[in-house]
């Protein structure tokens, strides 16, 4: 129990208040994140509404297979994260470390596939601001799709990188036995963050990859 007492910050009366505050804080932060991505989604909705044909044509250049695989990878990493949180709740140290490492690995796989896709776009001269070349009509409108693609997935990827850093911090803490059945909220709230990043992708995937397949 002494270990748990050390985990209590001075401003709180007990661990329950501390856990409650931290969980609420993370949810409030996620509300901020919803609106942060929300600005991008609004831009997407406006331009999609304005240039439906260009978006359909442009999205043919998205790699649906890579996108689908990445969706599966990210959902699997979310499952691993959920299992990590459950292990923390049960106070199981070794499974906790294992599931955290699996979450990180799958996150890294996602980023790897993403980087490979970016590379392909670069080779195909589809990176706005770097080497965008479009011979067909609606050049500017198609460029808008790719611009939004890079900004939205780039912001998402940045969140993934931050998430992997946070997970590293958890693994180091777990190896030193910092977490227990009474004190596991760091795992829980970083888990919330990780699931949120997954959620963003769940919407990005159909919006960016699947809109022009049948045209």
């Amino acid at each position: 129990m002494s270990e748990s007492t050390n985990a209590l910050a001075h401003q709180f009366d007990d661990l329950e208040q501390q856990a409650r505050s931290n969980t609420l804080g993370m949810w409030a932060f996620l509300a901020t994140e919803v609106l942060f991505f929300g600005g991008l989604f609004t831009a997407y909705v406006v331009y999609r509404h304005a240039f439906p044909e260009a978006f359909a044509v442009g999205s043919k250049h998205m790699d649906v297979v890579a996108g689908t695989v990445n969706t599966a990878v990210l959902i699997a990493s979310s499952l691993m994260m959920a299992l990590a949180v459950q292990s923390a709740q049960l106070g199981l140290r070794r499974p906790l470390i294992m599931f955290l490492l699996l979450t990180m690995t799958l996150g890294a796989v996602f980023l790897g596939i993403k980087a490979w896709e970016y590379h392909h776009k670069y080779v195909e001269n589809l990176v706005p601001g770097v080497n965008f070349v479009w011979e067909g009509p609606l050049r500017n409108q198609v460029q808008m799709l790719f611009l939004l693609y890079f900004i939205m997935t780039g912001t998402h990827a940045l969140h993934m990188v931050i998430g992997i850093c946070l997970l590293t911090y958890l693994v180091l803490g777990a190896r030193r036995g910092r977490f227990s059945r009474e004190y596991f909220f760091p795992v829980e709230i970083i888990g919330l963050y990780w699931h949120f990043v997954d959620l963003v992708w769940i919407f990005l995937f159909p919006l960016l990859y699947l809109i022009g397949l049948h045209l």
């Binding site: 994140e33 989604f41 909705v45």
Partner: peptide, 20 residues
């Protein structure tokens, strides 16, 4: 907590709806 979850969604809806 549910209120906070809802707030994020509702505010996103305000942003998109009033822009549209």
């Amino acid at each position: 907590t549910k209120v906070f979850v809802a707030a994020g969604i509702v505010w996103l809806a305000i942003l998109i709806a009033l822009t549209l």
